[in-house]
Simulated assay, not measured.
Amino acid sequence: MTSSAVSIMAHSARSLPGVVAIDHKVETSLDSVKWDSNGLAVAIAQNVDTGAILMQGFANKEALAATISTRKATFYSHSRSSLWTKGETSVNFINVHDIFLDCDHDSAIYLGKPDGPTCHTGAETYYFSSIYDALQGSKPNQDRQVVITLYSLEDTINRHKEEIVTEGSGKTSWTIKLLLDNHLLCSKICEEAGELVQTLHGNEDKTRAASEMADLLYHAMVLLSVMDVKMEEVLEVLRKRFSQSGIVEKASRKKS
């Protein structure tokens, strides 16, 4: 589904169903979707970099067509009986990079990059209320992300960083020691990189390589925390390089 194959004319994403003109190629693709009895399918918005589920809604054929055309996550609103684009009021659009249908073609994922908080509460995602936390008596925390393993590690490192600010350096842990000592941190990164390389030179088994890579990644993420760099920023750089050859990308870095 490329933008060149799309032509939605004359009306915005807020138009009433039935008034959006859809390109023939897009029409054919949308006909493969198994719409329910109300002409709807589940549409899930997911952060292209973090993997976090941002929100879930419903889309009809016109909403999905509008999303393809505008590359802004668009849904069908039951309460308004019309299409609505996420961010049309708050300006926190979800900029869609790709759209995936499940194997049954009855739900879609809008894989995109949000311009700001997705939830009206100011949270990054609608989903910040953990049932397991509630069972343990914890209150919902809208600053909490729906995290994959990488972001859970980043969150743990940053919580240690906050402990230094709130409690001073009296509380000790390996992460805190690294956060407080740049020389130690840098030497450990060099050490772990060397040990990872040695797994190849020494023809060691893959579990050893995975273990050394985990050590290197952890220490590198502590460095990122020291420098206030988020993993999301790193992954965004990687994503932007996908469409370039390595030679072209490297040459562009020398010019900037």
Rank of each mutant, 00 (worst) to 15 (best):
H105P: 00
L40Y: 01
S79Y: 05
M55C: 09
S243H: 06
T149D: 13
A10M: 11
I94L: 01
P140K: 10
T67V: 14
T118M: 03
L16W: 06
I131D: 02
E212R: 07
S256W: 10
Q136L: 11
M9Q: 15
K255S: 13
V19K: 08
K240I: 04
L184V: 00
I99F: 08
A5K: 14
N60K: 14
N182I: 00
S152Y: 11
N38C: 11
L101V: 13
L223M: 12
S81D: 15
I148D: 11
V197Y: 09
A210E: 09
L153W: 07
W84H: 09
L180G: 03
L185R: 08
H97I: 07
E249P: 01
Q136H: 08
I8A: 07
V96H: 05
R208W: 14
D104T: 01
D205R: 13
C186S: 10
G51V: 09
E204S: 14
D133E: 06
K254F: 09
S173L: 08
A45Q: 10
V20G: 02
Y110V: 12
T85I: 03
E62V: 04
H105K: 14
E162I: 10
T175A: 03
E232I: 07
K113S: 06
T28I: 15
R239L: 01
D102T: 10
D205K: 12
L217Y: 06
N95L: 06
G168F: 05
A73W: 05
T172N: 12
H201Y: 12
T74D: 04
E62L: 01
E233K: 12
L216P: 02
V226D: 06
A73K: 01
G18S: 09
D98P: 00
S32T: 15
E88G: 04
I247E: 15
D106M: 07
H78L: 07
G18H: 11
A10R: 09
E162C: 03
L101S: 15
W174I: 13
P117I: 01
V48I: 07
S245T: 14
D49Q: 08
A13K: 04
F75E: 01
K61R: 15
W174S: 11
G122E: 00
A214C: 03
S245F: 00
M221R: 12
S130H: 11
S138E: 14
F58D: 10
A5R: 13
L223I: 03
K206D: 14
L196H: 01
T118E: 03
E192I: 04
I247V: 15
V229M: 13
L235G: 00
M1C: 11
S256V: 15
G87H: 02
E167I: 07
L216T: 05
N60V: 02
G57V: 01
A210P: 02
D102S: 08
S243E: 06
G51N: 05
A13H: 07
K86Y: 03
A63Q: 11
L184N: 00
L180I: 00
G112E: 06
C190P: 00
H11A: 06
A41S: 02
H11S: 12
T156K: 04
I68V: 04
T121M: 13
A214L: 05
T166G: 00
V222H: 06
E162K: 14
